[in-house]
């Protein structure tokens, strides 16, 4: 009797667990559902590259341009302005040279560079530490080199933020709509985010898809060149071969895809 009751209880418990897990397993089949590939495509004028990159010419950068980059980018992507500075979200912003290039310590740097605002954003690394850290592949590298966020999948563990050596990522510590006027997006064509997910610059993937270059490059008044680093004929490669450029902390092995032209002093300033 004793034995039988035990066996019965064990069996009952096991089947209860099985019954409650089964529907959940069905609903969350392993692997995501994609549209069949013969039913999907890209717009004809979409910009397609193998390794998108950016060159930011600091000799042409002014406070005004730098501020404008932030403003238009944040407006286009519904980046909130939150009262609490701790909850700040930013995709691209002007940084002091010392903070942007921590491995280029130099007391006697040219005045032009000392005061030039350095726009910093996600470096779209070739070997992104954030992608390595993410436990759900919510952040991943596309074939064209862009490191993207899948906000639907992010669990908000913030491992990617600890992994990013550039401080490029922000976390939604509260509903980002709290920081939008009337809780309405500034750009209704683009989604907002929700609380509890990490976000960052997406190299304007949504604009590339419709044949436009990233917004910051477009409004930069020639200070930012965008293009395919893998194409030797591209404009960006020409710019790179014509000037001396540096990247942020390349010694960490991340392979940043954003390059900076630093001024030589007098002539350019």
């Amino acid at each position: 009797m004793e034995k039988n009751r035990r066996t019965f209880l064990k069996a009952a418990g096991a089947s209860a667990v099985g019954l409650s897990i089964a529907p959940a397993m069905k609903a969350h089949a392993f692997g995501e559902y994609f549209m069949p590939s013969d039913q999907t495509g890209q717009q004809e004028n979409a910009l397609i590259g193998k390794h998108w990159g950016m060159v930011i010419d600091l000799t042409k950068m002014t406070e005004e341009i730098s501020a404008k980059l932030t403003e238009v980018c944040h407006a286009a992507h519904n980046v909130p302005k939150l009262d609490n500075i701790k909850h700040e979200i930013k995709w691209i912003w002007g940084e002091h040279f010392d903070h942007a290039f921590t491995d280029h310590m130099n007391l006697y740097i040219s005045d032009a560079m000392k005061h030039a605002p350095v726009p910093v954003l996600c470096n779209q690394c070739e070997n992104p530490p954030c992608v390595r850290a993410c436990p759900t592949k919510a952040t991943f590298k596309r074939e064209d080199g862009i490191v993207l966020m899948d906000f639907h999948r992010c669990i908000g563990c913030r491992f990617c933020m600890a992994a990013c050596p550039y401080g490029s990522r922000s976390f939604n510590l509260q509903d980002p709509r709290n920081g939008l006027e009337n809780r309405k997006p500034t750009n209704p064509q683009f989604p907002t985010r929700m609380k509890g997910v990490v976000e960052k610059c997406n190299f304007c993937a949504e604009r590339l898809a419709v044949g436009k270059i990233p917004l910051c490059a477009e409004v930069s008044e020639g200070a930012i060149t965008f293009g395919d680093l893998s194409d030797p004929e591209s404009e960006i490669r020409k710019v790179l071969s014509a000037s001396f450029t540096i990247r942020r902390n390349p010694g960490l092995g991340t392979g940043p895809s954003v390059y900076y032209i630093v001024g030589g002093g007098g002539d350019h300033a």
């Binding site: 994609f34 590939s37 039913q39 999907t40 890209q42 717009q43 979409a46 064209d144 898809a209």
Partner: peptide, 8 residues
């Protein structure tokens, strides 16, 4: 995830 934005 695939960058495919057009459905046919």
């Amino acid at each position: 995830r695939n960058g495919q934005r057009v459905y046919v």
